[in-house]
Simulated assay, not measured.
Amino acid sequence: MRPKPPNSHRRCEPSGAQAELLIVGCGDVGQRVLDLLPARWRVRVLSRSARTDLQREGLVVCRGDLDQPESLKRLAGLARRVLHLAPPPSQGQHDTRTRALLQTLSRAQRPVQLVYVSTTGVYGHAHGALLDETAAPAPTTARALRRVDAEQQVREWGRRHGVCVSVLRLPGIYAWDREGGHPRERLLRGTPVLCEADDVYTNHIHADDAARACARALWHGAPQRAYNVCDDTRLKMGDYFDLAADLCQLPRPPRISRSQAQETLGAMQLSFMSESRCLSNTRLKEELRLRLRYPTVAQGLLPPQG
């Protein structure tokens, strides 16, 4: 079971405020957000199936499927704030799930704040350049195209209906207690990484800091504003896995050329090795005023103490 965060990080709304929140897509990050919320928050979670892993006073699980718009009717007018964490469909260039959600939210009193969690994949391949949120999206995969489509949908909807919409762009999310979310699992499999000459820059955020960014944005996100939610680390992928191996006292992964990788690795792994970029988190720190608990992966990759 994941440990509760320190009390010093629990408050995420102005003193005395009361809130109604709808979380759409309550996976690992969504559950970490729940851990941060004051008990007086009334929370609704959209789920396609019954959930026994959500234990919180005042929380109600609403059954519905974003792929079946008619099942979403009960969400209309349900909450003043919405955290949209659900991924797009796995095919096509458009996010039909986000479209279905927005159509439902338009049917009754609209929320005052919607936070959409996107990915930094919308920037595409930047050849290692440092990017901030003013960089134009340049998606290179169908997966990223769907995210760009979702961002455009929520922003246009927010402008049309006067709803404060904030977009959080997250890179690779990691945590020791996140299933499949720590590099030690890949290290144990001995999966190779690219040699220095072919390697790419990657970006990261600890799952706890990702959740804290979501909580901050629910109250402090600016209208139609995007935020890069990443830490201060600037490492190439191979160096990241070397560091993780050293911290976990595991063998460093073998290094191979890009041509060798194309012969041995799967399409998904190759896609992450085909884009190189560094990201600025200045807006996250200065506008959302988020103080990262794990500002570098060297701190976040360490196993929990005690």
Rank of each mutant, 00 (worst) to 15 (best):
R189H: 14
F272I: 08
A150S: 10
G92N: 07
R255F: 04
Q269L: 15
R184K: 14
A135L: 08
L292G: 01
P223L: 03
S47H: 07
L168M: 03
R10K: 13
R56L: 05
R283W: 01
A215H: 06
M273I: 09
G25W: 06
R97C: 09
R234V: 11
W219N: 13
V33L: 12
S118G: 08
Q18N: 15
A86K: 00
V148Q: 00
G180P: 06
P6W: 05
E57W: 11
L243N: 04
R212C: 04
R178T: 01
R225S: 12
D199F: 09
L279C: 06
R146Y: 03
L247W: 03
P295Q: 07
D232Q: 09
R255M: 07
G190H: 05
T120N: 10
D246M: 11
P69T: 00
R99H: 14
C12W: 11
G190Y: 06
G306A: 11
W219Q: 13
W219K: 08
N281P: 08
L265G: 09
V297L: 04
P171V: 00
P87N: 02
G221P: 03
R40G: 11
L187D: 05
L290C: 11
A217L: 00
R2H: 13
R51L: 08
T140G: 15
G121S: 07
V60N: 13
L235A: 03
Q68M: 10
L78R: 09
L72H: 04
L288S: 09
A19Y: 12
Q93E: 15
A261Y: 04
R277W: 09
G64N: 00
R63K: 13
G64C: 02
D199L: 09
G162C: 05
Q93N: 14
A17V: 12
H220W: 15
